[in-house]
Design a protein around this nucleic acid. Structure first.
Lengths: 336, 336
DNA sequence: CTGTTAGCGCCTTCAA
DNA sequence: TTGAAGGCGCTAACAG
């Protein structure tokens, strides 16, 4: 069932069929109705590939994440899928596994399928690959890293705001010795969060104690080890912020293993608000970063280039997303 | 840069370029070399859509999961992506969200992109959709449910074997009162697991106590509630098997809240071995179901139809995958 | 408003 | 072994 059968059945030419499907306003409503009826009856769907061939467009958006196994990402993928489909696009997702060779393969695959835009949500960037994307004129949107260019947008998480809320919450509770477990400092996004924390403390006039900020790996193990280190300090913190929820979960475990209690002995705050955070013991107070919002902004940024509403092709832009503290039960006032 | 430029540069016709790329054996090695050289130099990649248009093939495999947010699936997706790419295919993933309207949309999207095969890993089936797939002659592979047809294969998890190992482990430890928390019994796969458990017990000659098997929802909350119920029994079980790891995590939590200890007061065994199982408190003994193996078998089943090696188009088949017990620290001998 | 026609980039007979 | 030519199914001028 091709366009010809529809044309025949509706007694029009294939051009008219094509028009009523793509540009209804240029065809007589009564003919259009006839065509649409035929389309219905034949359950006709235009061949997407023939269409791509002539239009040069694929109606596919790419999404690159570092590790789909990390609970932060599936929700992002889900949101991305929803929003993309809503706008009539398909998505192609791949994991780079924090591995730049894999990343290169990802990009090549995306390019071969002629994606019309790519969201790179790895918080990392790889110059040559980005240049490649730019050369091919593929609109791109980054998370955290990334400088705005003609076709490149960036979504910046306002870590400062999120961490600020967390610190204020702790301060209000009476904490003064606040620790921080960062992600691996080789990751740009991890060091951004760490810096945000440090700046927040000085802004609040809290003396900085180097021992209190230590490095994890954004995974459970690293959080566990880091928290153990903190707890072994001669003068341990009464509250600890972590760079992500997985780290916080490891921290929770470390406290538990030491025979101590969260939040009575030490308060813990996570970051991200992965689904699981609600189910830790105790439920985790954390700074929620909406994956849905992230997905929406990313796609919005991409579509601005692909389907320029306002005549102009649209230049890359900087977007911002503000996380918000979700208070659950892993925080309380410190022992005096 | 299209095929023409390559042809010109290699001083051959476009037909020859096409041949050396698709059917090297039909072209003089020396001309082929020239062509390949030109291809290299121009970094030529055939247009995938033009190719699809003429060949009718998309080189895309579909993967439908129920909820990519469920930690079981991301690892499956990952494996599926790896294996597919290895074979030169792209993948299209979508979540149905346990919702048959969404499922219908998924299938339509897959059909529109002309996927060459679909893996439906939801443990559910929807007659009309399957018929639709079959009518369109799309090879399909199911998980657990699904009857083998010409184009339909099925991967059956050998739950009995897995649960058997778990029960024997418990028996060896000295347990006799073994409980079971099932998934929602509306899910076929959940009731399969439940049945496997029940049959295993009778096979072992253990008297069946109806109170000891209860229903969860394959999520943490359900596991928590179900375990609480079990613990409130006048004569509670000394060990509990669960239908999946999320349920087990909920169960762990319930025990903890009651002020009891896992494994000393009650042993808990999960199912699936999601990544997180290693990091629960205590680390979860569970029946591991390899997502990698699942992905490999699914793609193998699909490729058998798409790229029939042995002349014959290949008929659907039944595959089996055997899970294996991973003993960690949530099980030990019962209190006497 | 509608039909005719020329490609989009590639694969594949059919001759040479 | 190679080249010429005809589509694959659709969109987009260009005429009418």
């Amino acid at each position: 069932m091709g366009i010809h059968e529809v044309a025949k059945r509706a007694k029009v030419s294939i051009a008219t069929v094509s028009r009523t499907l793509n540009n209804p306003s240029t065809v007589d409503p009564r003919t259009a109705a006839r065509v649409l009826k035929a389309v219905e009856e034949l359950r006709y769907h235009p061949d997407i590939y023939a269409r791509s061939l002539v239009s040069g467009r694929s109606r596919i958006l790419g999404l690159i994440v570092s590790d789909i196994t990390n609970p932060f990402f599936p929700e992002l993928v889900r949101g991305f899928e929803d929003v993309a489909v809503q706008h009539g696009y398909e998505i192609m997702v791949s994991s780079t596994d924090y591995n730049s060779a894999r990343m290169a393969v990802c990009v090549r695959r995306l390019l071969e399928r002629k994606v019309e835009g790519v969201a790179i949500m790895t918080s990392e960037m790889d110059r040559p690959l980005i240049d490649q994307l730019e050369r091919r004129k593929v609109p791109t949107v980054f998370l955290d890293v990334g400088s705005v260019h003609a076709l490149i947008s960036n979504i910046q998480v306002d870590y400062a705001a999120g961490i600020n809320q967390a610190v204020e919450h702790l301060l209000a509770l009476g904490h003064r010795r606040i620790g921080f477990i960062s992600g691996p400092l080789t990751l740009k996004s991890a060091s951004i969060r760490r810096t945000a924390f440090l700046e927040c403390l000085t802004r609040k006039g809290i003396l900085e104690d180097e021992d209190l900020v230590t490095e994890g790996d954004h995974m459970i193990d690293g959080g566990l080890a880091a928290m153990s280190r903190l707890l072994d300090l001669p003068n341990p913190p009464t509250a600890v912020l972590t760079s992500n929820d997985l780290t916080a979960i490891g921290a929770l475990r470390a406290v538990h293993r030491k025979g101590l209690n969260v939040p009575k002995d030490v308060s813990v705050i996570g970051f991200d608000d992965i689904h699981f955070a609600e189910f830790t013991e105790p439920p985790l107070t954390t700074v929620a970063l909406s994956r849905r919002e992230l997905a929406e902004k990313a796609i919005f940024a991409l579509l601005k280039h692909i389907e320029p509403t306002s005549g102009q092709p649209g230049h890359g832009a900087e977007y911002s997303i503000t996380p918000t503290l979700v208070v659950r039960q892993s925080t309380c006032a410190p022992r005096q």
